[in-house]
Every structure is written in C-alpha cells, then in structure tokens.
Design a protein around this nucleic acid. Structure first.
Lengths: 196, 196
DNA sequence: GTTAGCATGTAAGGAGTTACATGATTTT
DNA sequence: AAAATCATGTAACTCCTTACATGCTAAC
C-alpha cells in the first residue's frame, strides 16, 4: 500500500472497532461513508491482501466456536488490525497529511472525526474550505464566460454547480464555527448545529 | 470509440460549432461543462486519435493563411467534425441511449440541451430524477443505521449528503416543470425559472 | 430442491493521471 | 535572451469495474 491509500485508511478505521470479514467490510464502506462508493470485491480483496502483506492487518481463518467440528465452516476470514496498523491509523489521523481535502479523502477523514483531535479537525475543515473557495472562483469565471455565449442550459448547469459548492462552503463554515466554540471550552457543542 | 464514449460525445458537441485544435478543446471541456473535469492531454489526444480512426472527425494540418510561408507554423492541428460525426452526434442527442443519467454523462447531455428536442430533454431529466430518488432512499436508510451508532460526525456527513441530493431533485423538478409548460405551448418559458 | 443471499477470490480490461519528451510563440 | 504559455504527443502506471469461477447457508 505504501503511501496513503484512502481505501486502506477507511478499512483501518472500520477494523479498529472490531474484526470483520471482507463481505461485511464492504457493506460498512457503503453505508458508513455517506453516499460513498459501493466498491467491488475486485477492489476490496486485493486491497485486504496488500494490507496483510504490509502487516497492517492479519487474517484469522475463523475458529471462533470450538464446538461443532463438522460442517467445516471454513469460509469467513476475519480480518483484525495489528499494532502496526493501529499505529499507522493514529499517524494518519494525527496529521492532515498529503492533502486530505480531496472529494474522496475528505469524506473518509470526516467519518473518523470522533477519533481525531480538535486541532486536526479544524485544519482539515479549513483546508477543505479553501479548496472549495478556489473551485468557486473557477466556476464563477466559467459562468461569466458561458453567460455571454447565450445558451440558457449551459448557464443553468454552471449556476447550479456554483450553488452546490456555495452550500458546501456554508456547511463547512457552520462546522468550523462549532469546532472553534468547542475548543474555546464551551460545553454546549456537538457536530450538528442548526435547528434550535 | 465503439459504444458511447462520454468524452467523445462532449468533443463532438464542441466541434460541431467550429473546428478547434486539441489545446483549445481541452480548455472548453474544462469551462463549458460545469465544474467538469479538467482532463489531461494524456487522455485527450488518444481520444482524438480514436475519433479520427473512427472517421468522426478529421485532422486538418492547418494551412489557413496561405501567406507567410516561412516560420513553418506546423503545429496546431485543427480538428473538424465529419458528416459521419455529425450524424453520430444527432443519433446520440436523439435518444437517451444507454442511460444518460449517470453523474458524468448527465452533465454532458445537459450542456447540449439546446440541440436536443423537448421530448428527449424531458426523458433525460426524469431518468436522472428517478436515479436520484433511488439514491435518496439508500442514503436515508444509511442515515437511520448511523444514527443508532452514536457518532455525531458520521451522522452529520450523511445528513449533509442527503440534503445535497434532495436539493438536486428539487432543481430537477423545477426544470421538468419548465419543460412541461414549454411543451404545453406557453411562450413565457426558458431554462431558468426562479426569481419573479 | 431450488432460489436467494452470504462469502471469497481472480483475470481482463477500461478510463484516466503523471511524468516525460519536444518544440513554437508570445510576452517581459 | 529568458520566461511564460501555447501546443502536441507517448509510456508507464493507478485505481477501479466487470465478468468469471467457486462454494456455503438459510429460507420457502
């Protein structure tokens, strides 16, 4: 796996809670991480193998129940995180590393915010925010150019794209504000602000 | 290119207006299509070549200005759409083909709506809408599951994801309504509704 | 008993990126 | 004259999907 494989990171984040077998890991990835990719087995199993080779996880060929010797039961390989894996996860979670503000990586990092310290959370949120405001300018420029070229549909596409990004920035602002008041020592804070 | 390459379709849509060279095509792809991919040359040029092989476009090794014979000027290969390419584009635009409601394909199709007939526009918008409502249910389920598991951040991620999709559905509803009133023969209609 | 869902994997291939390699034109 | 940007391309590589191949377990 070498560098900072997002998928491997997400898997470590899932396995750190309790050991699981591949099939279940895939389901979790699909539901845990927002509207995240429902990735295929053809992607998952090779990744698990790479992680085993890197000794971040180990594969227990389940012997859980000693009783019932027949009906062999040899399927369901339970993957468990190793000390090295746990250390790696902590390292990843500690620093906003190699830009955790890409679309994909951000979601994975965010989903593990309850295991991330406040300072790092803030750094990631702000990094993501500035990434989005850059994009905002690009889209706004494109919108200007497109408006001149008549064509209401293309303009509408840009307008909608712009709005989407603006909303995400507003969302981040809310989260950043929350994070700041929490670190100022306020006790009345949680991730979800909004309705009174 | 064979089937229905989204990139090739987007390029045909750009070249049908006027011939351009690769460098310029890439810029257009970046600005024209919403917050669309700024795709690399390593992707673009091989695609152009495939399209030339398929005779959808031809490469004119620019001789535009007959004057100035020195300073050779031989770079800038101007790509021009062929009759076959034009026919192919029309075919693509005529039917909502092999599901044009994926995230990527939808944007490309939408950006060419002014060259698409009303019935097809409506079919694509509705297809996209039903695709999104499916996703809506999946996310809503995931949100339920996540809420039970404490963890405010993951829940917030889902909530935000849900909201984003809901907004896109609302946007589509607005466009569909517009499209319907336009085909009912109202003269006061355009792609952008909204403010009175 | 047979369908549906659980469970694990591999091989081939698609679609794109990065890094490289090269050169012309325009601006400073 | 140097630097920026325009312009074209190739080769290697990454990441993921699809299709295939296999077998267990539970429900109807």
């Amino acid at each position: 796996m070498a560098k900072t494989d997002v998928l491997a990171l997400a898997i470590l984040g899932i396995l750190v809670e309790n050991p699981l077998h591949g099939y279940e890991i895939r389901k979790r990835l699909g539901s845990e991480l927002g509207p995240f990719r429902a990735l295929s087995y053809g992607s998952l199993y090779p990744c698990l193998r790479r992680m085993v080779d890197a000794e971040l996880i180990v594969a227990d060929t389940a012997e859980a129940e000693p009783a019932r010797p027949t009906t062999s039961k040899r399927s369901r390989i339970s993957y468990r995180i190793t000390d090295a894996g746990q250390k790696r996860l902590e390292e990843e979670l500690a620093s906003s590393g190699t830009s955790s503000w890409d679309d994909d990586t951000f979601d994975v990092r965010f989903s593990m915010f309850d295991r991330t310290d406040s300072a790092t959370r803030l750094r990631i949120l702000e990094g993501r925010r500035s990434r989005l405001t850059e994009r905002l300018e690009e889209i706004a420029e494109g919108l200007q150019r497109v408006r001149k070229r008549h064509d209401a549909y293309t303009a509408e596409l840009h307008r909608h794209g712009l709005e989407r990004v603006e909303r995400e920035v507003a969302w981040l602002d809310r989260l950043i504000e929350n994070e700041r008041s929490a670190s100022r020592g306020d006790t009345n804070s949680s991730a979800s602000a909004g309705q009174p």
